[in-house]
Design a protein around this nucleic acid. Sequence first.
DNA 1: CTGCTTTTCTCGTATGTTGATAAATTCATT
DNA 2: AATGAATTTATCAACATACGAGAAAAGCAG
Lengths: 265, 265
Amino acid sequence: MTSLARMLAILDLFDEGASVWTAEAIAGRLGYSLPTGYRYVRELSEAGLLRRDAGGTYVLGPRVIELDYRIRVGDPMIMAGQRVMRALADDTGCDVVLGTIYGERIVTIHQEHGGEGIAATYGRGRRMPLFRGMMSKVILAELPRPRLRRLHEHHREEAQGGTLPPDWEGLVLALKAVRKAGYSISQGELDPGLVGIAVPLVDKAHRLIAALGFAITGRRFATSDNARLVALLREAADRIARSLPATIAEQRPASRPRVRRAAHA
Amino acid sequence: MTSLARMLAILDLFDEGASVWTAEAIAGRLGYSLPTGYRYVRELSEAGLLRRDAGGTYVLGPRVIELDYRIRVGDPMIMAGQRVMRALADDTGCDVVLGTIYGERIVTIHQEHGGEGIAATYGRGRRMPLFRGMMSKVILAELPRPRLRRLHEHHREEAQGGTLPPDWEGLVLALKAVRKAGYSISQGELDPGLVGIAVPLVDKAHRLIAALGFAITGRRFATSDNARLVALLREAADRIARSLPATIAEQRPASRPRVRRAAHA
DNA sequence: CTGCTTTTCTCGTATGTTGATAAATTCATT
DNA sequence: AATGAATTTATCAACATACGAGAAAAGCAG
């Protein structure tokens, strides 16, 4: 493990539960010496990722908020998705959510409200349980086998509490079905009374990029045309995928003519 | 400069303009060797702070969105401010914003909409110009002299374009006045047609923590009772300051009895 | 499959990171 | 304001490990 990773591991501490830490507690928890703990915390604070709060405590820093803003206005995927998702929300009145997997976490990265005042528990930035909910199912279903395997091994306990079969064989079977169907409907798995419908969002090489989904009330779902909703999602997912910049050619800083390596130390 | 700081410097590249970078461009731009560039990018990607996009490009990662969520629901300052700010927005119909300074940046960290449909350019996460706008003025006015000095030196150019005197003596004088007044009103400095009113938010030791402000339309401002608005802000700022956890006693991970140093490697 | 680009590896060296201890802040309280 | 207790940084030698050059590997488009 590199010093870089050790430092970044500090951010993990803020993920669950505690949102306030002392440098001492951080060092103790992660097994770093006190000076090292302070060193890391200082570096992160200087980068704005942590903020020193009252009484020698540290909290996540304003830089995170700033970077989040940069994502909202600059991320290619969100930029491509926003318009389509907005239209979809307007047309249907449903909440539309976009989620993705990174590492071993599934997170909602964008959400457009449909105006029916759905108070979904799982809004933007919220981590989703791996084995329940429409998005997780549809994402897991598209994962390459080895990756799914690792995920399952690392999160055995969580798999127990999910709505998918907790054992490996059963899981694979269930996900195969989801993959075949091309969508997933989950009723009340995350919020009681809410129904989620999701489809995978894949690139032209059929690699999973994200999951796109509806959240609607159970009441409405009872009289809704599922096939139609799924079709709408598929269409929207397609549209988003197509409008994703294939390979951003523009980007290489215009000034620099493709240096082979750094010109200076 | 430590390797930690060098790695974190990569995040700066995403701050302005470009939101998509190749590893090669990053290495070139920051003067790192190619392997080092890739190493850093990999570490950041593994932490989720970057995400590998199509075509070997990298963008800010979903972890940022997740951390931002953690701030929204867990940051003591925002938690303390939210309720008060919401009430203030409801009572007045004005937009209410909370901003802070970190390093040499002033950023809006929370915003409550007043329902008058103000489309403020400077919402949550947006970096504000250092020398214009209500929040910047009120924040700079409370800064310790040496820190202000450094800020001014490092941002000479920006000071030119501000609405404060660009020269040091003039700046100090103007800010002294702001400090004495205890509030700042800026008309159309950020958004034409919008007026901002801000007061400093200080802790019991009178150290600056943040700035709390209103954004209202010029039309409304023309017939508004400024003294009253300022008083409302002051009261709210006080209430927020008082409800800030002085020293979070609860936090130290209950399990660990105040270790002197790490028990293991 | 075949070139191409992107990314990781290998490895010796030098640099930078580490932890114990001490010094210096900062902070709360009298 | 001053004291004492906290938090935070500095010192410094030993050691680990981050570094760069080049090569190899892995992805990727045609």
